[in-house]
């Protein structure tokens, strides 16, 4: 599905990603962990096409296409979805209107007609149930005045509505209470299929109890320094990053 090879990216003079290699296949769940500032959000932003970053080296292939050649909106239309670590507020634009625009833009890209209003509303009803999103939130401005947890839940609601092939969830678990975490994780599990894939960025093993990853990667100073199965997350939880940090200290920053 996505194949990242030797990806380097920098902002200004500062190199943040320093040779990322990652291969994600349909049906898989990958978890990326790593200390603060190691480049996890940067990786997701670069994949989504944020223009502040310069890709200086490497390739990314997404469903056979050169992802780095596509505009951010075309990446989204091709089925890449990013649940933001810090979802953005768009005052005055209702969630519903926003999603309808998004959904129809994606459909248009694939040569489909706009979704009839009736079907759209049925979809909203169905998907908001999935993440137990209060129907009032669906009609409010996009993330406008939402609590931290509500914003995260809204990201998953949008993901459910847009039905992406590859979803990158950037710390969607942080800021969620225990019940919300379970609901969101449940939602993600229900949306999982053999045709789509998920990259979970998280600091906490707890999320991985609910959404069991096939692979866990540790990102440190812009590189994936260790990969393994779900037990790697447990190990990290127990030992912290000291060992990793000691081992890779030499990576100049």
């Amino acid at each position: 599905m996505i194949s990242i090879k030797n990806l380097h990216a920098s902002i200004g003079e500062k190199e943040i990603l320093r040779g990322i290699n990652l291969e994600v296949k349909a049906g898989e769940v990958h978890a990326i962990m790593g200390p603060n500032g190691s480049g996890k959000s940067t990786l997701s932003s670069v994949l989504a096409g944020r223009e502040d970053y310069n890709v200086t080296e490497g390739t990314v292939t997404f469903n056979g296409k050169n992802l780095l050649d596509l505009s951010p909106e075309d990446r989204a239309r091709e089925g890449l979805f990013l649940a933001f670590q810090y979802p953005v507020e768009i005052p005055g634009v209702s969630n519903i209107n926003f999603l309808r625009t998004a959904l129809n833009e994606i459909r248009k890209y694939h040569g489909h007609e706009e979704m009839p209003a009736k079907d759209f509303l049925a979809l909203v009803k169905d998907k908001s149930k999935l993440v137990e999103l209060d129907s009032k939130l669906a009609s409010r401005g996009v993330n406008e005045g939402f609590s931290g947890g509500e914003k995260k839940r809204n990201e998953i609601f949008q993901m459910a509505m847009l039905n992406p092939q590859l979803a990158i969830l950037d710390e969607t678990d942080s800021g969620l209470d225990i019940d919300a975490l379970r609901i969101v994780a449940n939602g993600v599990n229900k949306l999982k299929s053999k045709d789509n894939a998920t990259i979970l960025i998280t600091h906490y093993q707890r999320l991985l109890d609910y959404i069991v990853p096939d692979f866990v990667h540790i990102l440190y100073k812009g590189r994936i320094v260790k990969s393994g199965g779900k037990e790697l997350a447990l190990e990290l939880e127990a030992k912290g990053y000291d060992e990793i940090k000691a081992q890779f200290e030499s990576l100049e920053s």
Partner: peptide, 21 residues
């Protein structure tokens, strides 16, 4: 960027944001 990440191009995004405002 948030709008674009959802498949909405720049022009439509500006329209949405301005009308919301």
């Amino acid at each position: 960027f948030y709008c674009k990440q959802r498949g909405i191009d720049n022009e439509k995004a500006i329209g949405l944001i301005v009308n919301g405002y």
